[in-house]
C-alpha cells in the first residue's frame, strides 16, 4: 500500500458514495446510465470472485465487499426503486460492442488460461470501457448535473491515481502487471475530454454543458 493507491481507492469509494447519495437524496436517477452501472456490477462480480479463494488483507476484503454491495444497491435503485426516473431513451449505447472485443481480448491476452484468471482479465478490460455508455449519454443530452460530474471526476481520478501507484510499485517493489497497466491507461485516457470540461467549467461554477 502506498499513498497513490490509497488515494485512488478513496477516490473510487467517494465516487460510488456520491452516486448512491445523489440518487437517494433526489429520488431520481435522471442522467445516470444504467448500462454503465450494469457493466461496473459485472466488473466487480467477476474480479472479486477471489474473495472466496484468496485472502489478501482485511482492508482488501472490506473494500471488495463495499464495492460489490454499493454496486448492486445502485443497480437496484436504477432498475427497481426509481425505475420511473431512469432516462432509458438517452441510454442507448450498444454494450455488445464493448462486451464482444473485451471477451475476445481477455481470451487472447491473459496471464494464465484458467477460468478465474480469464474472468479477472475480462473484468480489467471491461472496467476500462464501462464508463462509455455514461459518457455517451452525457454527450447525447449535451449536459450533466454538477453532482454527476463530481461523480465522473472522482471515478476517473481513481484509475489515474492507480497509474502513479503502478509507477511507484515498478520502482519500489519491482512489481508490475502489464494487463492492469495497459487497461488502466486506456481507462484514464477515455476520461481526458471530460476532465478538461470539468476543470474549465464545473470548477468555475458553470454547468457542464457541451457546445451545440
Amino acid at each position: 500500500m502506498n499513498i497513490f493507491r490509497l488515494l485512488g481507492d478513496v477516490s473510487h469509494l467517494l465516487a460510488i458514495i456520491i452516486l448512491l447519495l445523489k440518487i437517494w437524496k433526489t429520488r431520481s436517477c435522471a442522467g445516470i446510465s444504467g448500462k454503465s452501472q450494469l457493466l461496473f456490477a459485472l466488473t466487480y462480480t467477476t474480479r472479486y470472485l477471489d474473495l472466496v479463494t484468496n485472502f489478501v488483507s482485511v482492508y482488501n476484503t472490506f473494500m471488495k465487499v463495499v464495492f460489490l454491495a454499493a454496486s448492486y444497491a445502485t443497480i437496484w435503485l436504477i432498475y427497481m426503486k426509481f425505475r420511473a426516473t431512469y432516462d432509458q431513451n438517452h441510454d442507448t449505447f450498444r454494450i455488445e460492442f464493448l462486451l464482444l472485443p473485451v471477451t475476445i481480448l481477455s481470451l487472447v491476452a491473459n496471464h494464465e488460461f484458467t477460468l478465474i484468471e480469464i474472468l479477472w482479465t475480462w473484468s480489467i478490460y471491461l472496467e476500462a470501457v464501462a464508463i462509455l455508455p455514461q459518457l455517451f449519454m452525457v454527450s447525447k443530452t449535451g449536459e450533466a448535473e454538477s453532482i454527476t460530474s463530481h461523480y465522473l471526476f472522482a471515478l476517473g481520478s481513481y484509475r489515474g491515481l492507480y497509474i502513479l501507484n503502478w509507477i511507484y510499485r515498478y520502482y519500489m517493489e519491482s512489481y508490475y502487471d502489464l494487463i492492469a497497466i495497459f487497461a488502466g491507461i486506456l481507462q484514464t485516457v477515455l476520461y481526458c475530454d471530460f476532465f478538461y470540461l470539468y476543470i474549465t467549467k464545473v470548477l468555475r461554477g458553470q454547468r457542464l454543458q457541451l457546445p451545440a
Binding site: 493507491r5 481507492d9 473510487h12 474480479r47 477471489d50 484468496n54 489478501v56 488483507s57 482488501n60 473494500m63 471488495k64 464495492f67 491473459n110 496471464h111 494464465e112 484458467t114 478465474i116 484468471e117 479477472w120 492507480y162 501507484n165 512489481y175 508490475y176 502487471d177 502489464l178 494487463i179 492492469a180
Partner: peptide
Amino acid sequence: LRGGAGHDEL
C-alpha cells in the same frame, strides 16, 4: 508477464 493468483489490488 507475471502470473495471476496474487492480485492484491482492487
